[in-house]
Every structure is written in C-alpha cells, then in structure tokens.
Amino acid sequence: MREAILKVFRGTPVEAGKFITYKVPVEEGMVVLDAIHYIQGYLDPELSVRWNCKAAKCGSCSAEVNGDPSLMCKTRMDQFAEGEEITIEPIKTFPLIKDLVTDVSFNYEVNKQIPPFCPADDATWIFKQEDIDRVQEFRKCIECFLCQDVCHVLRDHERKDAFWGPRFFVRSAGVEMHPLDCGNRIPLLEEQGGLGFCNITKCCTEVCPEEIHITDNAIIALKERVVDEYHDPLAALLRRVFKGK
C-alpha cells in the first residue's frame, strides 16, 4: 500500500511549535482529514484538530495544506505526488490554541455587530426566485473562515481592530440585498466594517470552498453602494433633488 508523508504542525501558545512527520497508508479516494484521523486513531491520540461533517458542509476543518488555505475534508491525497511531503499547518490569521486548532472567536464577535434582517411590517412575503439568487449565493457560506485567514488585511496587516473581513461582507450583503429588507448597513460597513481596507485582491474568492464570488458579487457590490453614499457627488445631488419632491 502506498504511504504518504505528512508534516503536521504541533504546538501550543506557550511552547514553540514544531513539525512532526508521520507516515500514513493511503487508500483510494482518501482526503487529508482521513490521514489526520489515521494519525489520531493509530499514531498520536493527542493531535488536536477540529472537524464535524467531513463533507464540506460545516467548515470546521480549515487548515493550510502545503501553504494553501483549504478544507482538509475536501483536499484529496491523490493530488500529491508519491513521496511528496505534505505540510499541514493551522490557519495563520487566528491565535493558536493547539496543533491545528485556532481561536476564531474574533469572527463571532464581528458577527454580533451586523444589524439583523429587518423586513417591512407590511411585507407580503411574495418574492421571486430572481430576487434571491444573489442572496442565496451568499447564504451558502459555511463559515470555514478560510477567506478571513487568507485576507492580507487580517493576515499580514493585522487590522482586526478596524476590518471585519470578507466573511462578514458576504454576510452583510446577504441581508442588505434581501428583497424585503429595509435596513441600511452601508454607513456601518464603511465606518466600522472597514470596507475601504479591502483592495479587492480576490484571495478570499480563490480559497472559498463554496465557490462564492465573494469579491465580485458581495464586496464590490457593497463598495459601489458606499460610493453612492460617500463618493459620488452626482448621486448625492440626485438624492437631494428627489428628496425635495
């Protein structure tokens, strides 16, 4: 049976991290998470990892496999060459807890700041599929936080103090574009969410396991709404004229 060589990051916040190499037998159709489970079950029961559904539906097993932010349950072992060392590290943007597990509580804090969906009191609840195709794309998000991990504003510039990250622009877009929503989250997105920090380098879209067009459909759409309210004198003038009526 073919064997794979896995270099897995092990460490805690207090002791320096190191890579430990494991040899794992490879079965047909195996994914990286299976290999990690093999290590847990047979080689090292202490290896920490988060996982739940093993079907790319819950977004728990995010890690960096050979440096690529990915879901371990979706990363096939047969894409690696025979004898290739496979490096597995925790996602880098969030503080380490242990081994492959990180503290992602930042994301839950940000989520609380987004004003909820607010329908009009007299809404009829009749709307068409064409109205919600956009929103449904955003609601596919499984909160794996890979976009948060790869976004350089959080990852390298460490602007967690002023920037919500792609996941929460997607989430905001999901409520903002709901056909029955009557809220306006644009000022909040601009002033607290830090939408202007995004320089649309699209890494979030590249890593999204749900293939959500984060940048094109959510972030840029929101940025254009910000332009409407903040940077477009013509739009401001038109608003004033129509309000005057």
Binding site: Q40, P45, E46, S48, V49, I97, V101
Partner: peptide, 14 residues
C-alpha cells in the same frame, strides 16, 4: 487511558 494534558486533547474527550 490517555496520554497528554487537558489542553485540546481529543483522545481524552473521546
């Protein structure tokens, strides 16, 4: 029995 500490130790949880 299980080795290690209580720090995120899946074997212990199991």
């Amino acid at each position: 029995s299980i080795s290690g500490s209580k720090l995120y130790n899946p074997g212990w949880h199991l």
